[in-house]
């Protein structure tokens, strides 16, 4: 099944999920409202026409305007792929329903995305930091992140990421 076909079926089944097809990429991406992600995922896994049984990757992303969670799905049976995206503006905390009950591999990936981006996943079975210590302050992959000066009296060499403008010079 191609991504536009999947998109049309999803749009019929979830009229209120504000689905958008982003076609300006090499692979088109289906964008959905945060609240609808878990329901869409469950359908994508369980419907025999889709049967997306494997979650290849789950990543947090920060764009200029918003935080996002991106899901890359794959079906071992039908050999097709789809990418989902959920996002929210930076003014408020991004809260996405967990998909870890649908694909257990999402458990650690969601924890990582919470750890490094501060994206919250509702109903997650184990919402702790995973790579950083539990008492770490801040979310390192955010573009405005500033490392703390010390951690348990250990001085941390602060790298000034602000100085390195992200590719403005050409």
């Amino acid at each position: 099944m191609t991504i536009p076909e999947i998109f049309n079926i999803l749009q019929e089944k979830f009229p209120e999920a504000e689905l958008v097809l982003e076609e300006n990429n090499p692979d088109p991406i289906i964008r959905a409202k945060c609240e609808a992600i878990a329901d869409i995922s469950l359908l994508l896994r369980d419907d025999p026409d889709f049967s997306f049984d494997s979650l290849m990757c789950l990543s947090g992303v920060e764009t200029v305007e918003e935080f996002q969670t991106v899901y890359h799905l794959y079906s071992m049976l039908h050999n097709h792929k789809v990418t989902l995206r959920a996002g929210g503006t930076k003014e408020e905390e991004l809260i996405v329903p967990t998909v870890s009950h649908i694909w257990p591999t999402a458990d650690w990936h969601e924890r990582e995305s919470f750890d490094l981006f501060g994206i919250k996943y509702t109903d997650h079975p184990d919402p702790r930091r995973i790579l950083l210590p539990d008492d770490w302050v801040g979310y390192p992959l955010r573009k405005d992140y500033e490392p703390q000066k010390t951690w348990h009296k250990i001085p941390l060499t602060a790298i000034d990421y602000k100085e390195e403008d992200n590719g403005d010079e050409s």
Binding site: C57, S59, V61, E62, N166, G167, D168, S170
Partner: peptide, 8 residues
């Protein structure tokens, strides 16, 4: 631009 914006 010349740096990756995000690389997972």
């Amino acid at each position: 631009k010349k740096f990756p914006w995000r690389l997972k």
